[in-house]
Design a protein around this nucleic acid. Structure first.
Lengths: 145, 145
DNA sequence: GTAACTGCAAACCTTTTGCAGCTTG
DNA sequence: CAAGCTGCAAAAGGTTTGCAGTTAC
């Protein structure tokens, strides 16, 4: 996906195209993982050359806009009071999180297919979505106790 | 469960028995739901008579201790950057959250029985736990759009 | 009596906001 | 050109910490 493609996505969502928004969106495409606002800011600030400035509050404002247009998803994966953001792939995704190194791996397939519907019948809720995250120790961290 | 029972629980965990800790623990038993530190503080402060003071930072410190002794569980159910705490019943629990009124209802039974083991085999992770939360609109909030 | 706990106030950290200047369409 | 975006600094809100006084064992 190149800059022109991203521009088109923004256009279709009524989002004005700016250098900062391009960069944040490119970053989210590249990292393929839930990330914090601060991580986006730090990484992009680091790789900035000269006048390519980017402010943390701008990152938050951009993330808000992306959220409102449902380009991204917000969640609180860890318990450290930081929100994480990731691209909203249409496919419904879950993650496996390593509690030692914090590596986040997408899980292929949803084990809850059909469950939402069943739950809707038994509770009379209108089910909108579910969040599932699995926690464990990744192969690399096993043994390095 | 009376005060003496709670005292015994504290003793078994090496937690010194104080008035504040008793009150927070009683509160968690009574509310049977994930609650924020602030909610605990507000409710207990309101019902405090005379010298029964309780400080918000004390609530946080008590929750930290309960967490370390695994008496409670911490999570980030909502996206508003507040942590919630609930008693750690040994049975593994999930919740149904109404996105309109924030009502939290426990779900009976875990739809992921056996899934962890399967995932462990396919990923070579040592699976420790999973968190599942389902979001929807409760019967009362439906229609009141 | 002593180690540990609590209240208070201040610090800390993430996130939000007001405003002046700049950019995009 | 006008509307809207960005940077900066300051504020806001949740959580943590230092310290002096109090309490539990």
């Amino acid at each position: 996906m190149n800059q022109e493609d991203i521009k088109q996505i923004f256009k279709s969502k009524g989002i004005k195209n700016t250098r900062q928004r391009q960069r944040v969106y490119e970053y989210l495409i590249a990292c393929q993982q839930p990330v914090t606002a601060d991580a986006i800011y730090m990484d992009l600030a680091r790789e900035s050359a000269g006048d390519e400035t980017l402010n943390l509050s701008t990152v938050y404002r951009i993330l808000d806009i992306f959220l409102k247009q449902k380009l991204i998803i917000k969640s609180n994966l860890t318990n450290d009071n930081k929100s994480t953001f990731e691209l909203n792939k249409r496919e419904h995704r879950h993650h496996l999180v390593c509690v030692k190194c914090n590596l986040v791996t997408p899980i292929t397939g949803c084990p809850l297919k059909g469950y939402d519907q069943m739950l809707s019948q038994s509770t009379h809720y209108e089910i909108l979505e579910h969040k599932l995250e699995v926690f464990g120790v990744c192969p690399k961290c096993q043994g390095h106790s």
